[in-house]
């Protein structure tokens, strides 16, 4: 029998990965070369990329459509304040807050992951409302009066801007790396199987709940880190701003426009979202209406998003998440 090989990395994929490394290297020098305002905006972009990647891992790769991810975004910021007030160095507090929320999401997941489809979505929304109410009860937060990350307020603006930028860049890179490795590995294939048909996945040996749990906890911790980073840029913490459903709306826009169920899609979606926000953000309510309409149009008429459509059209397989069987008998790749 002729040798049949399974291909993952291709020359194009390696070139693409190198290009990403170059972009990241340039970005790493950001605060040294970019003007202050742009550095701040890029920090926001990194947070958007994180949010999009997390929501895509949930909905696009695992079939878990959450409309309550702002729960973890808000909790991440809140726990960061608690830890900082307790004397933890401020940037360490951001990371620890994300880990703490990740741990907290374990028992939450035990309840939520037993819900199916629409029930899960609604359950997550209720969870976000509940988290918001509970945080409001904290005397430190004092309802919607809010509080602030005092420890960072004391740091000079330029140093704070640069440090937060680097933290956000590192967080984005690390989380994208984790998602990539996760999706590329055994769990990634099992997740997609669960997304496509839970009963069939169970019938071939996939432990459905355990598999979902992994991505649920990752997305909780990732969104919490995004919330903590946002706090580091904004300093002030008003519960209403952090537990707002607008964050999940952003995640959905970023994922749907960029390409749900593709690794690269949310990164592209975040860049587009960033550009749209920069251009039209001042329009207020109409800007939000426009975002919602655009996400809806994409869901209806271009469900694969921009990256998904490009992938089909040009037969792109850049970052190697899938498996390609090469059958040399025909001298070409059979599809």
């Amino acid at each position: 029998m002729t040798q049949i090989t399974v291909q993952r990395w291709t020359p194009a994929a390696i070139a693409f990965a190198l290009a990403i490394a170059v972009v990241l290297a340039v970005l790493a020098a950001g605060p040294l070369i970019f003007p202050a305002g742009f550095t701040e905006r890029l920090t926001a972009l990194f947070v958007y990329v994180i949010l999009g990647a997390m929501w895509n891992a949930l909905a696009g790769y695992s079939g878990l459509v959450s409309v309550g991810q702002q729960a973890f975004f808000g909790l991440g910021a809140f726990v960061a304040i608690l830890l900082s007030n307790a004397g933890v160095p401020v940037y360490a507090a951001l990371l620890l807050a994300a880990l703490a929320v990740g741990v907290l999401s374990l028992p939450i997941g035990e309840v939520m992951l037993r819900l199916r489809g629409g029930e899960f979505a609604i359950g997550m929304w209720v969870l976000a409302e509940l988290a918001h109410l509970l945080v409001n009860l904290d005397p430190l937060v004092n309802g919607e009066t809010g509080t602030s990350l005092i420890a960072l307020d004391a740091v000079p603006a330029a140093a704070r801007r640069a440090d937060t930028y680097w933290c956000a860049l590192a967080a984005m890179t690390a989380l994208l790396g984790i998602v990539f490795l996760l999706l590329r590995g055994r769990i990634g294939a099992s997740l997609q199987a669960v997304r496509d048909d839970e009963q069939a996945a169970a019938s071939v040996g996939v432990r459905v709940l355990a598999t979902k749990r992994v991505v649920f906890v990752l997305a909780a911790a990732g969104c919490a880190l995004a919330g903590a980073l946002w706090l580091a840029t904004a300093i002030t913490f008003q519960p209403r701003a952090y537990f707002s459903v607008q964050w999940t709306a952003y995640m959905i826009f970023i994922t749907l426009v960029g390409g749900i169920g593709t690794f690269e899609g949310p990164v592209l979606g975040a860049v587009i979202f960033f550009a749209v926000e920069t251009l039209f953000g001042a329009l207020g309510v109409w800007y939000l209406v426009g975002l919602g309409a655009a996400a809806l149009l994409f869901a209806l008429f271009a469900p694969r998003g921009l990256w998904g459509a490009a992938q089909r059209r040009y037969d792109l397989r850049l970052l190697p998440l899938g498996f390609h069987v090469v059958l040399p008998t025909t001298g070409r790749i059979i599809r």
């Binding site: 399974v6 055994r186 997609q192 199987a193 996939v206 069987v325």
Partner: peptide, 25 residues
């Protein structure tokens, strides 16, 4: 399954790979 339950978003090979790696260890 009597009514087939493929993993629609994955390739045929990937459908089998999940089975080989999890159920088939």
């Amino acid at each position: 399954h009597q009514i087939p339950r493929p993993f629609g978003g994955m390739t045929v090979f990937e459908n089998l790979l999940v089975a080989a790696r999890t159920g088939g260890n």
